[in-house]
Amino acid sequence: MQAKQVRTSWNPKRILYSRKMAPYLFVAPFVASFLIFFLYPSIETIRMSFMSMEGFGKERFVGFYHYERLFNYHFGHAILTNTVYTACVLVIMMTVPIVLAVVVNSRLLKLRNMFRSAFFIPSLVSALIAGIAFRLMFSDMDSGLFNQILHLFGRESIAWNMGYSTGILMMVTLDAWKSIGINMVYCLSALQSIPEDIYESAEIDGASALRKFWFITVPMLKPTLIYIFTLTVIAGYRMFTESYVYWVDSTPGDIGLTIVRYLYQMSFQRNDMGFGSAIGIVLLGIIMMINLVQLRGFGMFGKEKD
């Protein structure tokens, strides 16, 4: 009996076709990659945030020292930069994509498909590559595109990358250019799922186009908007590339210093991996808190209870 069982359990066909085994087999790659590439690094990051790495191969337990160090000018500045940046991007992402989606969804528009793809294509471009073009456009020389625009209004050229507010503007512009398209696609697909008859009955009641937009389109888009809002907040606080493309080696006056940039600077430029890990953990906390508050505000948790 025993021998038989062993033999059958090693029959590869039996294993593959077994109802009990198959599910584990299918999830194995995911479980493995989760354990190796997510769980282990996460635990290791938490552990490292309590360690001081001294050069190579030496570490020492320092307790909450790295977390105490976070109360400094640079980190506060980085949180402020991320918050301002996220707020600016949010304002754009909560308005422009909807309007664009409504426009490219309109039957009155000719060449609709061309416009749709034109708005979407920037989302396919890597931010690093787009950044090269934007860096040239924001050049502080007279020949830079945005300085040329200033000249049209009779203004002097400015050094865009040397001022705080212009620096934020540069990063927001790059992100807006890149992300509006994908968010427009989300809105577009949501728009197309709104039943036509709701609009028809509104028309019978004599609703204007604006009222239809405000009282039908916007509420029906709410789930999509929450989705865009959540992702934009996460992306905003995790932002790195938009800063990196403009200020590669150093960020003058911490203009482009975001939380992740600070993490990168500490871990990889100053070899302070323990402190970098602590920044990472705090960033996780910040994003989680904002999203919890925001999802609660949108009533995402209330629904489940009801």
């Binding site: 294993i15 085994m21 584990y24 087999l25 999830v27 194995a28 790659p29 479980v31 493995a32």
Partner: peptide, 14 residues
């Protein structure tokens, strides 16, 4: 054991 086998599979791939 099933879990262990599946893990083993994954590890052997790497």
């Amino acid at each position: 054991t099933a879990l262990a086998v599946s893990l083993l599979l994954a590890v052997s791939t790497t």
